[in-house]
Nucleic acid binder design. Structure first.
Lengths: 328, 328
DNA sequence: TATTTTTAGGGAATCGATTCCATATTGTAG
DNA sequence: CTACAATATGGAATCGATTCCCTAAAAATA
């Protein structure tokens, strides 16, 4: 591996001059510049990022913390982040928590030690422990998917998306609507989507039976089980169900099919997340598209702007789009 | 950020001694060690990875090159890689090619410049340009998902998996079997799975009409289109179809449903990859499970062994498992 | 007791860049 | 013809660790 020192010797100049050519800074004569450039060309020299970052305190690496890489939402976000970063010569250091909340906190520390220039946190919660750590580490952090006071974030309008989706069901004549949610420590998915649903129901003067409100985790089976609970436990049967993720909806759908319940005639169904498969289900699933890739791009863009001390938007709430298919 | 120099001053020793305590090397008196440890404890000092790697030429970072993060196979592999690496204090630098072959080559260079200790390449091909670059960069590289002479790799027994799956259809009485493949530059998925299929057919004395062999790309729609071609173009109609990925199978399934073709009565169907959704399709899809996460773990394990000059297995071919469901 | 070996610890070089500061040369305004 | 600014370049310090080499004291051996 050739170093700046050797380039300097070969070009008959000092390391300083080579550095000036590299960084386009200071005064360098046309003659010297040519010689240095020629040697660089010939040797294929590329400066060591290690050495550079030791001196400059910049690594051109962004840490990305995510709960799992195996579901579509985070994958798409990372794709967006990656595209934007690579355009700007940055790279991603990946930290996968495998859904372990404690690790979200731990990785913040670890990434700081790795001297990343910034962190993108695809968050599952906004608990105080996590928020405090973010403030403590003094590395710019952008949260994706959750709102949090004082923080930089890019998120979705979960409340209104849920409100609109519920309104759609109501417009189509449904009065008894069930809801499959997740734990409310996930403010975005757990709390806001539920609130949007409940407010839409209330503002239309509709009641929600407690048995219609079920809670699952982020997998298909738990959607299946939730649907089962809804149908078995409720006395008044709902005619529609909203699940807060497509996977929960898919699980619900599989239970309905097992029981021979026709969709949407006997039970309308919708999810969130515009998963690829939704379109190919039978019937195709109504869902909400959040443009996760764009969220990732935005997060990266704002983070880089902040890092490079340019103007940036601290908080972004992205739009959503209902994709209405045959399941309603 | 506190440095080794400050720790040395606070503990009343030289940087050398602090370094010795840190690395458990050389002679340090019990007394001095205690003092240094106390100061480290109090300050929460952690040595800079930058500085360390500048000197030692080790970064404890592994580059992972993948074609996309949005499909299950690479995601699972990365999950496995991540688990194994983090156990050993290594981290992942992610390079997403977004299916651009040229970038596979480019990223090898880029990761080398970042001084990664090793690279895991989730490969889509084994073209000479790529293989040459791997040899050129002199960083240990493990290929996942493809076989390649002289290289380190972890892959699957694609040939026999396809052979067995085809045999299963034949055992169940199918004689006319269609095949939805992909481009053969992807040796594993394109070539070997096709060869396994053809050899199984041949060894049972079965003919394959050219119209039964369709080629798609790695998405659902192209499975749909391939199925369409098969049914529209063939004169003798197949009674079963094998698709080389579950997504292609899902596409094929959606076409069949559109046309009211019953599965498996009129057309049996199977895919590869054990995608999560396969189980919830209607009918549940028969598929081949490759244990991708394990492949990722193995790749990481062997790579680290190589890096740390321990014994390692250069080439690993992992087992597979047929998951037989109602679609056959 | 003399000599060798082990233990302990520091000084300084090193890794590969950037950058401050000093110096030399050339150009330009007064 | 000065004086001063602009241009051009290099020496050396710096970033934060590791590590080679050297010295000194303590312990073991002759």
């Amino acid at each position: 591996m050739v170093t700046i020192k050797e380039i300097a010797e070969m070009a008959g100049v000092s390391r300083t001059t080579v550095s000036r050519v590299l960084n386009n800074s200071g005064y360098v004569s046309e003659d010297a510049r040519k010689r240095v450039e020629k040697v660089i060309e010939e040797t294929g020299y590329v400066p060591s990022e290690q050495a550079k970052s030791l001196r400059t305190k910049k690594t051109k690496v962004i840490g990305v913390i995510l709960p799992t890489i195996q579901t579509e939402t985070p994958s798409r976000i990372v794709t967006g982040v990656g595209k934007e970063l690579s355009k700007n010569g940055y790279q991603i250091l990946l930290a996968n928590t495998n859904l372990d909340k404690q690790k979200e906190v731990d990785y913040l520390d670890l990434l700081r030690l790795r001297q990343v220039d910034g962190i993108i946190l695809i968050a599952t919660n906004t608990e105080p422990k996590l928020m405090e750590k973010i403030k403590e580490i003094k590395v710019p952090v952008v949260i994706v998917g959750q709102e949090a006071e004082d923080m930089m974030y890019v998120t979705y309008d979960d409340y209104h998306a849920a409100f609109d989706l519920t309104s759609l069901f109501i417009e189509r004549g449904h009065q008894n609507i069930a809801f499959i949610g997740v734990d409310e420590t996930d403010r975005a998915v757990g709390h806001l989507r539920k609130k949007g649903f409940l407010d839409a129901m209330e503002s239309n003067g509709l009641m929600v039976e407690p048995e219609w409100m079920q809670t699952g985790v982020f997998d298909i089976d738990s959607g299946h089980d939730a649907m089962k609970s809804i149908l078995e436990k409720s006395t008044k049967k709902p005619t529609a169900t909203i699940a807060v993720t497509d996977r929960l909806a898919i699980g619900a759908m599989s239970y309905l099919k097992e029981k021979g319940v026709r969709i949407p005639e006997q039970m309308a169904l919708a999810g969130f997340g515009a998963s690829e498969i939704a379109k190919y289900l039978e019937p195709p699933l109504t869902t909400v598209d959040y443009q996760n890739e764009k969220a990732g791009e935005q997060a990266a863009k704002q983070l880089l702007a902040k890092i490079e001390s340019k103007n940036y938007q601290k908080q972004i709430i992205l739009d959503y789009r209902l994709i209405i298919r045959k399941s309603v």
